[in-house]
Simulated assay, not measured.
Amino acid sequence: MYIYKLTRIVFNNGEEVQPGNLTVIIGPNNAGKSRTLKDIAQKTTRSTSLPDVVVSDVEWTNPQNLQELREAYSLERYQDEHTNWMFRTLTPDLSEEHQGNADFWFEDHLISHVFSNTSLFAQQFGIAMLAFITTEHRLQLVKEAASAAHERQEANLLQTLYNAGTSLENQIQKLVKRAFGKETKLDFTVPQRLLLRVGDDFSEIPPDPRDARQPMEQYEKLDDQGDGIRSFVGITTALLATKRNVFLIDEPEAFLAPPQAFRIGEFIAEQANSKRQINNFSHT
């Protein structure tokens, strides 16, 4: 099966890096670490990137055909109100829905041209292949958001978490419990709204959301908690709920006390494997 991976990163000074499953670059403030991630994100998700600052070139694996790509990443297409074929995915920062044109999927010569042209592939499909978790956006990843307006919509990370089901939510709950001694639970008792609650024990919450509404209101919102737990839940949810193989994470230890920083580092290392590539940058 096709796996999207970064194979080569070239810096402006001529140095090169061939990223492995887990690549960690450590350095002081203003050393260019965050800028490196931004350059990589721009070059892999845009047809025309902004002027190079740190990185001059990025190479990645390309699929052989559209079917191979769709099977690996479940890219869905649909017809809009104007009968145009579109596909939808979360933006690389996982904050909103991106809708891309899919009319060219039906034209063999056009789709072949996209696969043979790296800048076109970046523009059309790179946005769905890579996740870029910045320190600026991390605290907003799992904030209260609207529930899906239609079937299969994933316009925010909480919708993705909801669609993933209880098994994955329980996995995140265990990670948070281990790191912070608290549990989290997705609250969808109001049909138009999704949010995470924080508490000591959710075992007595009724399974029917109508019966659970009042009991759930007794628990605090994750949005009202400290930066540390919000950052931790954002990173763990992004890695577990999204089907992407390349993650760029800027300072994953930011906002966390040493014990929690150790836990997030341990979790990230466990997630990096032959099918998932994680690149993160930390301060010394």
Rank of each mutant, 00 (worst) to 15 (best):
Y4D: 05
K5E: 00
F11S: 13
F11K: 09
N13L: 01
E15T: 13
Q18C: 13
Q18F: 13
I26G: 09
P28E: 10
P28M: 00
N30V: 04
A31L: 00
A31T: 15
G32T: 12
L37Y: 07
A41D: 10
T44Q: 07
S47M: 15
L50A: 13
P51S: 05
V58I: 07
E59N: 14
E59G: 07
E59K: 13
Q67R: 08
Q67C: 05
E68D: 04
L69H: 02
L69G: 06
R70F: 02
Y73Q: 01
S74I: 01
Y78Q: 07
Y78N: 03
Q79T: 13
T83I: 08
T91A: 14
D93L: 02
D93E: 15
L94T: 12
S95N: 11
S95W: 01
H98S: 13
G100F: 07
D103H: 07
D103W: 05
D103A: 11
F104A: 08
W105I: 07
W105Y: 14
W105M: 13
D108M: 04
S112Q: 14
S112R: 14
H113V: 02
F115W: 00
F121V: 09
F121P: 09
A128I: 03
L130C: 10
A131F: 03
F132K: 11
E136H: 15
R138P: 04
V142W: 03
K143T: 11
K143W: 05
K143S: 11
K143D: 14
H150D: 01
E151Q: 12
Q153L: 01
Y162L: 08
A164H: 04
A164V: 05
G165N: 02
Q171H: 12
I172D: 00
K177P: 06
R178H: 12
F180I: 06
F180Y: 15
K182W: 08
E183W: 01
K185F: 10
T189R: 05
V190F: 01
R193K: 13
R197I: 03
R197F: 03
R197Y: 00
G199S: 11
D200A: 14
D201S: 14
D201H: 06
F202D: 13
F202S: 14
E204V: 09
E204G: 10
P206W: 00
R210L: 12
A212H: 09
R213Y: 06
M216K: 09
Q218E: 12
K221R: 15
D223Q: 10
D224I: 06
R230L: 00
R230E: 02
F232C: 04
V233P: 11
I235H: 03
L239A: 03
A241T: 01
P252E: 05
E253Q: 10
E253K: 06
L256T: 04
P258H: 04
Q260H: 03
I264K: 09
E266L: 03
F267K: 12
Q271E: 09
Q271G: 04
K275W: 01
R276L: 00
N280F: 12
N280Y: 15
H283T: 15
